[in-house]
Computed example of a mutant assay.
Amino acid sequence: MTAHPFDAVLFDLDGVLVDSELLANSVWVELLGEHGLQMDRTAFMARAVGSTHAALFDWLRADHGWQRPDTFLPELDARLARAFTATPAIEGAAQTLQALTAAGIPFAVASNSLRSRLHMKLEAAGLAGLVGDRAFDPAHVGGRGKPFPDLYTHAAAALGISPTRCLVVEDSVTGVTAGVAAGATVWGLLAGGHIHPDGEAALRSAGAAHILRTHAELREALGLSVPA
């Protein structure tokens, strides 16, 4: 078997495997506007990518003086559920997961998404069968999502591999910070269709050792071949 530089690969979901960021942020900005807070989508996305809902609500309250009404969260959940039924996979994501499987390299997904949305997006993108039960969310670690390292240490433990032998693939400073804190090697993947608010320089500053822009580049860097 060909030697590979890592014993496992741990993926973020949004912006790394599925192209969901524009869908989600458009829903947020539209609904915030209906509830009295007008925000530029790019500015909102700069804070939202990689974050949790709890952290976003804290930020909106602290920096914008906006308090969430009781009706906001149920409506947000309903609209996101509708939007995420159309979540596409990022080009080449399925081939990367297939190539890892063929090479015998275990992988998992660690996402700040709520569990129901995480699985909804994987299903819509056609990746659920490839990922199986190796998808983890903050509820698996007592709500301590990224930038805490807990999600990545939990995912590595579930695979039976030390985080120091794992590659984490991320597209946000929040996620890179979590991967580095877990002791993993982190690569940035800027393959999503949205504007990446953190950008290459910010990911490198957070500790990303390498920046890639397509799944084809990721597979090449890992020495993987797409199964025939």
Rank of each mutant, 00 (worst) to 15 (best):
A86G: 06
A86V: 11
T87W: 00
T87Q: 00
P88I: 12
P88C: 04
P88T: 10
A89L: 02
A89P: 08
A89F: 00
A89E: 06
A89S: 10
I90M: 02
E91M: 12
E91R: 15
G92C: 09
A93K: 04
A93D: 06
A93S: 13
Q95W: 05
Q95R: 09
Q95G: 15
T96C: 12
T96M: 10
T96V: 13
L97Y: 00
L97T: 02
Q98P: 08
Q98V: 03
Q98K: 13
A99F: 04
A99D: 06
L100M: 14
L100H: 00
L100E: 05
L100Y: 06
L100T: 04
T101W: 10
A102H: 13
A102D: 11
A103M: 10
A103C: 06
A103E: 07
G104N: 08
I105C: 13
I105E: 03
I105A: 06
I105L: 14
I105S: 01
P106E: 11
P106L: 08
P106D: 09
P106H: 06
F107T: 15
F107Q: 15
F107N: 14
F107G: 15
A108N: 08
A108S: 13
A108V: 07
V109K: 06
V109M: 03
V109L: 02
A110D: 14
A110E: 14
A110V: 14
A110T: 09
A110M: 14
N112L: 07
N112C: 03
S113F: 02
S113N: 14
S113W: 00
S113E: 00
S113V: 08
S113P: 02
L114D: 12
R115L: 07
R115E: 12
R115H: 12
R115T: 10
S116C: 05
S116M: 03
S116L: 03
R117G: 05
R117T: 01
R117E: 09
L118V: 09
L118W: 07
L118E: 01
H119I: 13
M120A: 15
M120D: 15
M120R: 15
M120N: 11
K121N: 01
L122I: 11
L122E: 09
E123I: 02
E123G: 04
E123Q: 08
E123N: 08
E123L: 05
E123F: 02
A124S: 14
A124C: 09
A125G: 13
A125D: 07
A125I: 12
G126A: 13
G126S: 10
G126C: 14
G126N: 07
L127G: 05
L127Y: 08
L127D: 06
A128H: 10
A128F: 00
A128V: 13
A128P: 02
